[in-house]
């Protein structure tokens, strides 16, 4: 449910590092508590995100949640599959249901995130 190679935020986003590019999505816990995802609003490529601040919104039929960026940096890619077919966020939250890729300004900020074990412990 919570892959050990990812980092997690308390707002239920995950980060997968690839060089200095962070791939970001929401966790299984987040998509399950939201229910069927029907809409994802993401910022444009080139805009910047601030760690732990809002970068978008995710909606189910009867709920809206803010998306908070677990890292700071510049958006280099947004997942059009998540925008066009939001169900991928439910189906494969760690795979084709990813949301944005961010080029990090520094990697120290990753220390503020949790590993899978700590994240699972806050879900208890």
């Amino acid at each position: 449910m919570y892959p050990s190679d990812l980092k997690y935020s308390k707002e239920h986003e995950w980060v997968r590092m690839n060089g200095n590019i962070a791939e970001i999505g929401v966790t299984v816990f987040a998509q399950e508590s939201l229910g069927d995802v029907v809409f994802v609003e993401l910022p444009a490529v080139g805009s910047s995100v601030v760690q732990f601040e809002k970068f978008g919104e995710i909606e189910s039929v009867k709920a809206v949640s803010d998306l908070f960026s677990p890292v700071e940096g510049t958006i280099v890619e947004v997942n059009s599959a998540a925008i066009d077919s939001p169900e991928v966020v439910n189906e494969e939250p760690y795979g084709i249901g990813w949301l944005i890729k961010v080029e990090l300004s520094n990697t120290d900020q990753l220390d503020a995130l949790m590993d899978a074990t700590s994240y699972e412990s806050i879900l208890q």
Partner: peptide, 9 residues
Amino acid sequence: LQTREQHIR
């Protein structure tokens, strides 16, 4: 499209 509306947002 009810998430636009006051009872949710």
